[in-house]
Design a protein around this nucleic acid. Structure first.
Lengths: 204, 204
DNA sequence: GTCTATACGGCGATAGAC
DNA sequence: GTCTATCGCCGTATAGAC
């Protein structure tokens, strides 16, 4: 790939990602994708054997893009407070760039979908986060309260990711532009760690 | 409707709800729905004029089912602590019965969907929650810290609803049965209010 | 109200020329 | 590799008998 132009294959995959993320597998059509990639349907099936296969590739990429940073940062070697701030900040920035990623991944996992489950058996376990172990350690040192840290981690994820899952709902209800929505999630970069740390430092 | 049997119309609507919630609008077919309702396609189009119209009805119902309890409880006349506990408890029980509701509503709102936005202009504003006003009041009395209560309410929603949005992800990752998943969210009925109240009562 | 049969279009996928 | 043309199927929707 010596020159800066995207190959046809890459253009198709980019287009597929865009369309699948917007509409989901069921509502997306190969015609949409071909048009969006400035080619035709035949080429979509030439490079990827079927809509299904193309979807698999896009989903795998999206899945790792969504969850790799999560586990990476939470497994960093950082003091607790710095880690939480860094996680919320990085995750928020990632989702500002690609706000449809979590909804895509989660919505395609409804209903014990066989398409998806195969793709994940390999990737799923790697996220057995070191984060909970770190919390446990801090609790034993008496720095934070002892608590159900599985729940704490889940709440952290929830508070960061949920606003993007309900982005359109929020924008509609509060009549926000994209920029105003970004301000809202930016505020949470301070807010979420503050709540979490206040809770953890309060002696139970 | 003197006898206990469901009318054909009701059977179709129930089936439609089941199918739409599992697969979303795009992947659901009227054939699925007809078969699931033990009738045929013609009757689906006899009672509801089209797949689209049927979807609208199901979506409207699901939307109100999801968000009416939210605003109802948060606008109850209850002291703060009791209200938060009640909200988390009731909402969790509702979602245990109908875990696909939030994903359905939110996923059908991707991409500035015109289908949906019309249905919502009427319903959206009624949720201008009294809850934030109550928090503000308590803050002025010095009972809780002053904070961005919009963010607090969003975090509350996130912590309650997110586990159901990512239910299959969680069940797969931690290898949980439905019962074990219910235990997990039941634990949160104590956990979430505890975190929220600890944060609010800590003087900033 | 309910069913069978069918019209019609859009979908995914492929054959075959270039 | 790329395009045009087309196949066969399945989707929604309707007509018409009962």
């Amino acid at each position: 790939m010596p020159n800066s132009e995207l190959s046809t294959e890459e253009k198709i995959k980019d287009a597929a990602k865009k369309i699948f993320l917007e509409k989901g597998f069921g509502s997306a059509t190969t015609r949409d994708i071909a048009e969006c990639a400035d080619t035709n349907i035949a080429l979509v099936n030439y490079y990827f054997r079927s809509k299904e296969k193309l979807f698999q590739e896009v989903f795998r990429d999206s899945f790792t893009e969504t969850f790799m940073p999560v586990t990476r940062i939470l497994n960093d070697d950082l003091p607790l407070e710095a880690k939480i701030y860094k996680f919320v900040d990085h995750m928020t920035e990632l989702l500002k760039r690609d706000p449809l990623l979590p909804m895509f991944v989660l919505s395609e996992m409804r209903g014990e979908n066989s398409k998806i489950c195969e793709s994940l058996t390999e990737l799923q376990q790697q996220g057995s986060s070191l984060f909970q172990a770190q919390l446990q350690e801090e609790a034993e040192k008496g720095n934070i309260r002892s608590a159900n840290f599985e729940q704490v981690e889940l709440s952290l994820m929830a508070m960061v990711i949920f606003p993007f899952l309900s982005m359109n709902m929020i924008k509609m209800k509060k009549n926000l532009s994209t920029e105003e929505f970004h301000q809202l999630v930016d505020e949470r970069k301070k807010n979420i760690p503050e709540m979490l740390l206040t809770y953890l430092r309060q002696k139970g």
